[in-house]
Design a protein around this nucleic acid. Sequence first.
DNA 1: TTGTGTTATGAAATTGATTTCATAAATAGT
DNA 2: ACTATTTATGAAATCAATTTCATAACACAA
Lengths: 326, 326
Amino acid sequence: MNISEIAKMAGVSRAAVSRYLNNGYLSNEKREIIAKVIAETGYMPSSQAQTLRTKRTKIIGVIIPKIDSDSISQIVSGISEVLSASGYQMLLANTENQPEKELDYINTFRQNMVDGIILLGTSLDDAKLKNIQELDIPVVILGQFVSAPSCIYHDDYHAAVCMTEQLIKKGYHNIGYIGVSKNDTAVGVLRQQGFLDTMRAHHLAVPEDMVITGSFYMENGYEHAPLLLERHPELDAILCATDTVALGVIKYLNEQGILIPTQIAVAGFGDSRVSSILQPSLTTIHFYYHECGVEGTKMLLEKLQNPEIPNKSIKLGFELILNDSI
Amino acid sequence: MNISEIAKMAGVSRAAVSRYLNNGYLSNEKREIIAKVIAETGYMPSSQAQTLRTKRTKIIGVIIPKIDSDSISQIVSGISEVLSASGYQMLLANTENQPEKELDYINTFRQNMVDGIILLGTSLDDAKLKNIQELDIPVVILGQFVSAPSCIYHDDYHAAVCMTEQLIKKGYHNIGYIGVSKNDTAVGVLRQQGFLDTMRAHHLAVPEDMVITGSFYMENGYEHAPLLLERHPELDAILCATDTVALGVIKYLNEQGILIPTQIAVAGFGDSRVSSILQPSLTTIHFYYHECGVEGTKMLLEKLQNPEIPNKSIKLGFELILNDSI
DNA sequence: TTGTGTTATGAAATTGATTTCATAAATAGT
DNA sequence: ACTATTTATGAAATCAATTTCATAACACAA
């Protein structure tokens, strides 16, 4: 079933049918007859042929490091919400935490498949950013600050400052830190920097070996908590770069019968759904993940409408969720 | 940059370039010169034009009820793994728990956009299934048993039987049940049926008002747990159709200072990541979600290779995760 | 009546690839 | 030396839409 057949059945030209589909110049008479034929046949125009002419796919490529993560699935949910409201489709690419795959996907997408790209950034080196800027389609980066394309990011640094101050205020002075890879500027570098700067500002020592770096998974906390405690028996709190890591720490402490927060306080970042259900509930930072997805997508769609719009970067705030784990 | 320009630059015909791209009949001489030109220009063939001819998009449509769910994101992760290994892309559509949107998306996908569809089924009535069978592209249903297209599903009934027997064995005889919508045969109907049948087999009464049906969200457990306890002060256990619902119940019990499992035992289904971290850890059923995604995708890709393959349905097992909440 | 402008319409070009078909050149077989 | 076959190649058709351009039909003013 193609446009020519519809045209023949309706006794009009292909152009007329195309005009019908695109609200072009057409008499009501023809409009009606074409509508009838289309309703009868259930004809749907081929999006490939349309794209070939119009150069628009109405598909947005979304690149994420992993899908089964609380924060990421919230962002994706926001993206999907806006896209589907605007008649766009979402092509989702999962790098499975291999940042080098990001470029692969960008190149696949570039192959005329998508109108724009949303990248949930992990490690963004200069080479990658240069590559991104050379694309002829709009790109929005989520979760990391970059000067080049537009981006929406969280105030990771001050969130860490806020959390650290809170810990200090509560009387914890020997605070260990379990972080994640420095390749991730937002989560790996800035949160740790916020922690260290605040400790220094309060004249509290943080020996080098009281800071540990690991993966984004629970195992990071589960395996490194004992290491920290062994090295520093005086430890009274552990701050983790993500809630997921904090969950690992909590699992270990529970297994060992170490009381939270009496013996060791624990805090995380991300306000994962379970933080309030844990016993004790986990003190954490709420970031606006869903909003991040929503706003980022709106930004991309605006760029699509008007490519002349200059790059913007939006910093989203945070909220301290004061629970019982500190 | 299109195939004609490349052909001109290389001094060959468009057909030769196309043969180069598709490993066709071509002399090494031409092969080399074309390779050089393509490398210099960074040319990438237009996937739209390719699709227009070949009728293959190398895109699979995946329809899910929501993205920010533990079980679903695990399934999607499995799907994404297999697809990307096979050079396919994933078009993800989120119905946001509105089953009527499933058909909308199927229709959008049908518009020549995808080679096949994976549907994480929620409510599948006959009309919808008929619609699906009339599609000219292969479809695989995940999570529900259907006779029509191929499907991969979990043994929800026996999982519920197993869990209920376990509760009874542990001495709980007044068990309340918080379920989800009956529109979902697997999660809503079969799990509840397994529970009721097992209770009956053990001659244990389950008054009608000891079974409550609600949403897939935590609120379901959080709001209905007090209702159950009020109606039946003799209650000694609550079985929930999903871990998420169980989390809501646990949240309520914790807030009220009701001890788990001493005063009330709680169990769920789905082995969500946090079940082992909760205090007490949640007794639950492990389903093979990731495998479900992997196998379902393999099944679809096989069908794509050979459309003559008859429909298959695979039932995946489960595992009782015996923790401390019962 | 002629000229001008508006409204509808279809023919044909265009988009960027693949594929069929015809054919030329090279090699093999007798 | 003459077919027969294999190997390479390009011209042209094809896929299914959109869009430009030309033009027919009609209304209206001079």
